[in-house]
Each structure stands twice: as C-alpha cells, then as structure tokens.
Design a protein around this nucleic acid. Structure first.
Length: 487
RNA sequence: GGUCUCGUGGCCGAGCGGCUAGGCACCGGUCUGCAAAACCGUAUACUCCGGUUCGAAUCCGGACGAGACCUCCA
C-alpha cells in the first residue's frame, strides 16, 4: 500500500473512505454533538470527546484552519417510545429540587473540569441551546414556510411525508420509512403527530415545565434536534465540512438534523459525517441505563469499584487512542495496565532522546519514519498505527543511546520535534508529573547513600534490607548502570 | 422481529487479497552480588464450513456466536 499523501476519512453518509476536500481550501468547519447537561458525563461519553479532540488535533497538525464547534445541550424536549414527553434536565432539576439553570451550570462546571483533566483542546465555540432559542425559532419558521412542518395545538412537528416528496429520509442510518413503519410502535392516540415518523420541532409548554420560552406558536420548548441545526448554521453556515458525534446519535438525532437542514436550507448540513464508536464494558456498551458506567473522575481518583487502582488521565487517553475511533473498545483492568506500562515506556523513551548527542551521519531515515506516522493519520485518523510508529521510534532511541544507531544534527532535531508534536500535540497525552516532595527526596538521598555504602562493603544483608523495606513502603529501587534511582 | 456491524495469539487491539502492526503478559538472553528495573530477542492468531483466486485473516455464500440501532443515549 502506498502511503496516502492526502487526508482520507470514512464518511458515514456513503459508508466509504473518501478523500477529504474542504469547502474552502485550507479551512475546516467541524461540528460535534456535545453533552446534555442533566448529569455528569461518563467514561463512554468521554471516549467520543477524546476521539474528536484527537481528530481536531490531527486537522490542526496538517495545517488546516479549523473552526470547531461543540454544543452544550441545556434545554430540549423529546418524545420517547411511549409517546411521553421527556425533559431530562427538568427531571434532574425536580429530583435535586433546584432550578434547571442550576443543574446545567453545575454539570457544565464539571464538564469543563473534565476537559482540562483529559487535556481536551477547547472548541472555538461551545454554544448552548438556551442562548439560541431565537435562532431555533427562525429555523422552524423556515421549515414551516417550506411546507415541511405543521402546527398542532401549540406544538410544531416535522412533516416527514411532505419532506419525502422532495428529499430522501433515512439515508444516513440506512433506513426506509416504509420499513420503519412496520418496526415501530403504532401512533399513540393522544399524540398530535400525523405520521409516526414525524418529530417535534417545538413542544407546547407543560404546566410542570421549569423553563418556558415564547414563540409564534405560544409558550413552549424547542425539540431535541433543532438546536444543532440552528447553532451549526449560525456558526458554520448552511453547509460545512465535518459533523461528528457518537454512533448512537446516528438515528434519530443526526437523521433529523439532516431533515431539518434540508427542509429549511435545501442541503445536507455536512459533507462528511463521522461517528465515533462506543466504549464497552464486558462486551456491552457503557450506558447510564445499563448501569455499567463509571465517571472519568473516578478512574483517575481510583474510586471506581471496577478498578483496583487509579490511572492517570493521560494513561486513559492513551488507552483509548490505542483503538481506532470507529471500533468498539473494551475497557478492562488488564488492558489499562498494559497501556499504562506502554505509556511509561514511551515517556521514558522520549526523555532519553533529550540526552542523545548528534553524530556526523544518520543511520536511518527520520523523514521516512515521519511520513509513515503521518500516513497513519491521513488514513482516517488511525491513532493505533500512529502509536505503533511511536514505539518504533522508542526502539530507535534506545539504539541511539547504545550507539547502535546515529543521527546527524538536523535529523536528530527533526526526530525530536516530530516526536514531541505527534505525542503531545496530536495524541494529546501529557507526561506524568512526579509529585515532588522535598522532604522525601532528602530522606531518600540519605537512604540511598547508606545502601550504596553497604553495597560497596558487600554488606548484602543491609543493602537488601533497605531494598525490601522500601518495597514494602511502595518505593521501588532501580539499580542502573549510572547509579540507582527510585520511584 | 427488522436493519446494520463485528468475530485476530493469554489480554487489549491494527491490518482488510501476496510484504503476516503495536502495547502488555509469557519464555530466552544481556546487565546485576542476587533480584527488580531497563534493554535485546524468540514464539504464539486470524470462529467454523464451503467457494472465487496462482495466492484469502482480508473477497463471496452459509452456519454458529457477540454487539449496536429501531424515537433516552457520546
């Protein structure tokens, strides 16, 4: 296989890998569906955000000027399978006996903390649904004007049957409306919808609603899908390059977004639809309703009952990027431990590189290696192959260290720069900082000197007593060629 | 039930017609007073049954198994 020189990405819309051609050369508009803030995002949610952060970083690495928009859902009503109106945020607010806004604010603060913890680059804009009610109303008005929606008792519904006269529905998820009809529940008698596939754009206010907005159709709440259409249009235009989100949003959310966009502006909002796959626990998708979830904070604090020890956020991030974003990933303690060890080896390799001196000649091609690593990114953001290339580099670093390989000054500097870029800027991991403790350092210095003295006197009993005693205290002694270290 | 995806060595995972990633564990070696650590190296695989092909983990068909979606979801 010849390495790709241009970016190819898998488009869910076509089901194929396609060459990436942005609408405007050198620029990329990307919209990713963010969290609904009625609770704290779990690790599975984080996987999607980490994956799109990685994709964002790849695009930046290749020099694209990216406008990255990720919304925050802080309002919205949806009709569930029983035909009941669901307002997750309102429910959470009632449960916690506070205002909706308080719920949203509380979980937004937590989400921002998580972004920092997992080293997610901030999007250019993080718009909220509640700040864009007017824009949502305007899109609904446009859809009504185009004849693809109808008003019923203060609510507005998308008219799938009318829409089907002009556009296909179900292209993204590969569904046909005729098939859907047989598979889905019958229309509930109390429902106002004319057709089972119709969905709410605006929902009339309910007496229990904590948040209500005015609209041309009376007081109410926006539907669950319309915010993405309104905000992506406002910040990225009627059509933009990349739309991302979790696989589980494909239907109905993204399908309805396409319908809303076509129904108002006549075009699919995005040219490339990217879907990140799910995080599994014991072969099953992590989800709130299965109860098999844990929080991104718990794994770092070591408070999740699923794991016997804490893991650094970078280790978790590294673990996740060892799988491709389109594959499901099974999280287990054993797999995390494997990633942790590998991650430490990578980090130690990188710091070893700082100590390497240049030679007159180069014994291997840094340029070839760099191209191979970048080819992985160009091929639908293949993080696992990028990581394999990083470990290949670690091998070369050890060869350099042992004098079995050489690099001249310019190659060495290219090697250093590229490695740092790919590891820290693209993969987005951070070196694990040793929690320095000046007093302990001082004590250890004395202890190590005592042990060294014992060793010189071949007093193995004392030397081993120190080593074993420290091991019991959780401090490991590492005897190397250039002295002894501990950690 | 319908639609779709997937079954790769002890584990996690790439690859998706010939070049058989990578990490961890295992085993062997170097180093070491011994050990650990570190480094080097070997080995182990494509669920099963057919078919296409000079050649299949990779394409096609079937069986079995797992998962996702089918108006909560990242």
């Amino acid at each position: 296989m010849t390495p790709n020189k241009t970016l190819h990405l898998y488009n869910s819309l076509s089901g194929k890998k396609e060459p990436f051609v942005p609408l405007h050369e050198g620029r990329v508009g990307m919209y990713v569906c963010g969290p609904t803030l009625y609770s704290e995002p779990h690790m599975g949610n984080m996987r999607t955000f980490i994956n799109f952060d990685f994709i964002y970083r790849c695009l930046l690495h290749f020099g694209y000027q990216v406008k990255y928009v990720r919304n925050i859902t802080d309002a919205g009503h949806i009709t569930n399978s029983a035909g009941q109106e669901v307002d997750s945020i309102g429910s959470a607010a009632r449960l916690e006996q506070v205002q909706s806004l308080e719920i949203v604010y509380k979980y937004n603060v937590k989400f921002q903390e998580l972004q920092r913890l997992y080293n997610l680059l901030p999007p250019n804009i993080e718009p909220t649904a509640t700040a864009h009610i007017q824009e949502q109303i305007e899109v609904i008005e446009q859809i009504l004007e185009n004849g693809f929606a109808y008003v019923e008792n203060g609510s507005v519904y998308f008219d799938v049957k009318a829409y089907l006269q002009h556009f296909p529905y179900g292209e993204l998820s590969g569904r046909k409306v005729e098939e859907l009809e047989h598979e889905t529940r019958a229309l509930n008698a109390q429902e106002e919808k004319r057709f089972f596939a119709d969905f709410a754009l605006w929902k009339k206010a309910h007496p229990d609603d904590m948040q209500v907005w005015r609209s041309p159709w009376g007081n109410g709440n926006p539907g669950w899908h319309i915010e993405c259409t309104a905000m992506s249009t406002k910040y990225l235009g009627k059509q933009f390059d990349i739309h991302g989100g979790g696989m589980d949003l494909k239907f109905p959310h993204h399908e309805d977004e396409i319908a809303q966009n076509c129904g108002s502006f006549g075009c699919n909002p995005a040219r490339y639809w990217l879907h990140a796959n799910m995080l599994n626990v014991n072969g099953q998708k992590m989800s709130k309703s299965f109860g098999n979830y844990f929080l991104p904070k718990e794994i770092v604090e070591g408070s999740s009952p699923l794991f016997s020890k804490p893991y650094a956020a970078s280790v978790v991030r590294f673990f996740m990027l060892q799988a491709h974003y389109r594959s499901t990933l099974d999280i287990t303690e054993e797999a995390l431990n494997a990633s942790e060890k590998g991650f430490e080896r990578l980090m130690e390799g990188l710091s070893l590189l700082d100590k390497i001196s240049p030679s007159n000649e180069s014994s291997f091609s840094v340029e070839d290696w760099k191209q191979s690593a970048e080819a992985a990114l160009l091929d639908d953001f293949n993080a696992p192959i990028l990581i394999a290339n990083l470990f290949e580099a670690v091998k070369q670093i050890h060869a350099l260290n042992e004098g079995k390989a050489q690099l001249n000054e310019s190659d060495l500097s290219l090697f250093r720069d590229t490695l740092a870029q790919l590891t820290f800027d693209v993969l987005g991991v951070e070196p694990i900082e040793n929690q320095g403790n000046a007093r302990l350092d001082g004590v250890m210095e004395v202890v190590m000197a005592l042990r060294q003295k014992a060793r010189e006197q071949k007093d193995w009993a004392t030397s081993d007593m120190i080593r074993d005693g420290l091991a019991k205290a959780g401090i490991q002694i590492k005897d190397g060629k250039e002295g002894t270290s501990w950690g």
